[in-house]
Design a protein around this nucleic acid. Structure first.
Lengths: 353, 353
DNA sequence: CTGAAAGCGCTTACAG
DNA sequence: CTGAAAGCGCTTACAG
């Protein structure tokens, strides 16, 4: 008769029904607001629920309903850290997560998060997918073929990446942002040579930004400098490495260096500073993203702000619509960006375009 | 015979079994590595799984296994934003989440996150709890009674908060950190008056820090200044408000102002700067946490670093042990902190103790 | 308005 | 080693 162990098996709807002197169907109806239970029934149930601290099992509900009320959010794991000021994945940090989460709050959905390295992606993704009703994926996590297979099983939204026919997508207007930036550097400051330090070589975002830069520079009669020596990886360390290489080979630096993202710019400014090269006096430097530290750097960083939080909100809303079968007006949403002018371009103070 | 709609009902284990010419039991065994299926059986199953892109339903697995392989992480929603540099919940931002997530990676668990305001907490928490095997809660989300009821239903770890008998907890050694900080201000700098701007009035963390400050100051013969006028709320805006109030009432500021967290210190330094009061020349200011921007402020911020990421790792490990029934050596883990000396205390450069 | 019963998609003793 | 069947805890037609 030693019954010290607490009942590790949680309470079920049967316990509540027994306690309330009703059937499990009635308990379920009260809890879900379906049918029209008598107020006496309702009260009996609520009392029993409260007295027992009953918590309905989500797995059983999901199995019965065909709806888990969970969306998965998957980021790429930042694999190349190094600098102390470097957040793991600045673009996709809490802002996106919270944009998504804030939107999910308005429904009864919750958000399952996962960071995945490029290696084990497919396997882990499938485990995650089984626990959710739909997925929001950071671009470049898996191959196009794997993505198509996944999207055949459940709705998928690609965040900041190349749209694909099988999925929905939310991204920022890289091209407009980059063109505005280059226009500022060339037309307003008169810089004639612009270097572009890329992100990962195969990143669609980086490629789009590079293309826009080259077009705009050409149109304005400035020289765009790119190439294998100018390949970064979205990290501060990567940006610093590019500068070290260029200087090591005694290349003359262009008048302005446009970086694929803010992290890269942080590394570049750091490396230039160490070489005694003045920013923006000798070389102007710009970023992309507008991370939180951008306004605290020396000089403060001129960059292009993406509406990160809003992208998260829209990604969730798209996914939710697809899950619940609501109509989706637009499967590929492109949001406007904003040029944020601070000091690293050569301007005096903060200004916005 | 119009069959255009894609089969919105996902594939089940029965489809795989039929495709492979086996029973669902065999499919399940292969997928879970249980039993000892013949390699021919194994291959048939794997082939079918691949050809169909089958993803096992997590809800059904959970219901059958009694294990969802999901832990919930709940933060308090930052309700009092305002300053542009203010992250929503700097202490619990991606670092904790990623500490937890990184640890979860080593198992097959995933992490469900939720931000909750203080209002609707209990209801939302119960919905969340039903979807998980255990919860990691930020302190002060719900009342002690509600917490006890919740903890009776599933394992709970309290992060950065008062340990309670029903739950496990992980926190930093506030007292040691604060005492080391005060010792530096009084013994090394010779400051004789130290003001303390608190966090939320009822925050156990803030109360613990205040108590440690008072004890240490008294022991060293300095004057500690606290009280209702010195009540902040962990936000930059709150810190700025305290300064505005004090100056508005023509109080003489103490030589050093110790803030309950970094966000508060950011607001304080901002407010002092606007009044033309030099930091640290006229008033030294310190924080607590060591958020990412701390090293970018002017002056750079002297503060106490909490091992945030490690706290996340340990919180998950404790919870995982409780869920799987593994022995837990210590139900209340207190981690050491580190005094990070920068410029805002009056020192010249970065140094660590 | 309420209850008995089927069914959601898995896992796992239990036979064979 | 493999398959038939029970059972996990809910929801929801279906009767009454």
């Amino acid at each position: 008769m030693v019954e010290t162990r607490k009942p590790r098996t949680a309470l079920t709807i049967y316990d509540v029904a027994r306690h309330a002197g009703l059937s499990i169907a009635s308990v379920s109806r009260v809890l879900n607001g379906s049918g029209n239970p008598r107020s006496e029934t309702r009260e009996k149930v609520m009392l029993a629920v409260r007295e027992l601290s009953y918590i309905p099992d989500g797995a059983a509900r999901a199995l019965s309903n065909g709806l888990k009320e969970v969306v998965g959010v998957v980021f790429r794991r930042g694999d190349d850290l190094g600098f102390e000021d470097e957040a793991e994945s600045p673009l996709f940090d809490e802002v996106v997560t919270r944009g998504i989460e804030a939107s999910a709050q308005r429904t009864s959905f919750d958000v399952l998060i996962s960071m995945i390295g490029t290696g084990d992606a497919t396997a882990r993704l499938s485990g995650l997918a089984g626990k959710t009703d739909g997925l929001i994926l950071h671009d470049r996590l898996i191959s196009g073929a794997a993505l198509a297979r996944l999207a055949a099983q459940l709705p998928v939204v690609i965040l900041v990446g190349k749209p694909s026919p099988e999925t929905m997508s939310v991204r920022a207007d890289n091209q407009a942002g980059m063109r505005a930036l280059v226009r500022h550097l060339v037309a307003d400051h008169g810089y004639r040579s612009i270097g572009y330090i890329s992100g990962h070589a195969d990143s669609p975002d980086s490629l789009a930004r590079a293309a826009a830069l080259e077009i705009e520079a050409r149109d304005l009669g400035a020289r765009a400098i790119t190439g294998p020596r100018w390949t970064g990886d979205y990290s501060a360390r990567g940006g610093a490495r590019v500068i070290a290489t260029l200087l090591g080979e005694h290349h003359k630096l262009p008048r302005a260096i446009v970086c694929a993202n803010d992290q890269t710019a942080i590394g570049v400014m750091h490396a230039l500073d160490q070489q005694g090269i003045r920013v923006p006096g000798q070389v102007a430097v710009t970023g992309f993203d507008d991370v939180a530290v951008a306004r605290h750097l020396h000089p403060t960083l001129t960059t292009v702000r993406q509406p990160i939080r809003e992208m998260g909100v829209i990604a969730f809303d798209l996914l939710h619509a697809a899950i619940t079968g609501a109509p989706v007006a637009q499967r590929d949403v492109v949001l406007p960006v904003e040029l944020v002018i601070r000091e690293s371009c050569g301007c005096r103070g903060p200004r916005r375009r």
